[in-house]
């Protein structure tokens, strides 16, 4: 229950444009910091004469990014597809399983401790195994490891959301003689949504990690992880770094997409609707 005092302006219904417009101003300090850090990095490397294999200059990474843009884009897109596939598969399954576990409490009580324990396991260690289940050259092996990585945080968060309903809100539904299906649709799922998005945002990061690190253990030649690995082996560090930058950008893109979806969905939450 919100007990916030009177605030009588309606929720801004301004389009995406205005939402983004506000964002630009909000993000300004972060952008300044980013530019500052990159500038400092450049200056320090020049001043201290750091070897390129330790850390290349940002300007060199940028030039490599531009020169190899086609190859990097192809590799990035290939890996992004794996990450996205794993993300959708793992998160989707996790939400379904969470709904089932929340609906049948006994099952949930029996399985939740294992889910929480699994959440603490470094699942990425299984990457070599999934590579042998499927062909390492195949996207499926990376999709599976990314999906497993995404599964547990989404499961645990969704389940927590579905079960953290205000008891009074349930009593009210009982007073209307609402059935379990109605209670899920109208109370439990809306209550869980903020929790689900928290899980999904964690999962976007894990999906990208799963795909790239999975490729470190063997993958198609045009995959981003393979590209980073092989370039680092032959001392083409600026190219390896350019690959890392692409991986970061792809991960960020996925994260931002989910965060934007959250904003559009959770209009009722004070912090997301300004």
């Amino acid at each position: 229950m919100s007990t916030t005092p009177a605030a009588v302006q309606p929720v801004p219904r301004g389009g995406l444009g205005r939402l983004v417009g506000r964002r630009v101003v909000d993000w300004l300090p972060a952008v300044v910091v980013l530019v500052g850090v990159i500038g400092l990095w450049e200056v320090l490397i020049r001043a201290l004469d750091v070897q390129a294999f330790l850390l290349p200059k940002p300007s060199e990474i940028a030039r490599t990014l531009w020169d190899n843009r086609h190859e990097l884009w192809t590799a990035g897109w290939f890996t992004f597809q794996e990450a996205l596939g794993g993300f959708l598969l793992g998160s989707g399954l996790a939400i379904i399983v969470a709904l089932v576990l929340a609906r049948w409490r006994l099952l949930g009580a029996a399985l939740l401790p294992f889910a929480i324990a699994a959440n603490a396991i470094p699942i990425i260690a299984f990457a070599p195994i999934t590579n042998t289940w499927f062909s390492p050259l195949n996207k499926s092996s990376k999709i599976v490891i990314a999906a497993i990585l995404c599964f547990f945080p989404v499961l645990v968060n969704t389940l927590r959301g579905l079960t953290s309903v205000n008891p009074r809100a349930l009593e009210l539904m009982h007073s209307y003689a609402a059935g379990q299906a109605e209670i899920f649709r109208r109370v439990r799922i809306p209550t869980a949504l903020p929790f689900i998005f928290t899980g999904l945002k964690v999962a976007t990061v894990l999906a990208m990690i799963g795909a790239v690190v999975g490729e470190y253990f063997g993958g198609a030649l045009n995959a981003l992880g393979v590209l980073i690995l092989t370039r680092a082996r032959v001392f083409q560090f600026d190219e390896a770094w350019a690959g890392i930058v692409v991986a970061c950008l792809m991960g960020l893109a996925l994260y931002i997409a989910v965060a934007a979806l959250e904003r559009l969905t959770l209009r009722w939450v004070p912090s997301t609707s300004e």
Binding site: T4, A6, A7, P270
Partner: peptide
């Protein structure tokens, strides 16, 4: 069209 948190 107000949400509950916008009410006293």
């Amino acid at each position: 069209n107000h949400y509950p948190w916008q009410l006293s």
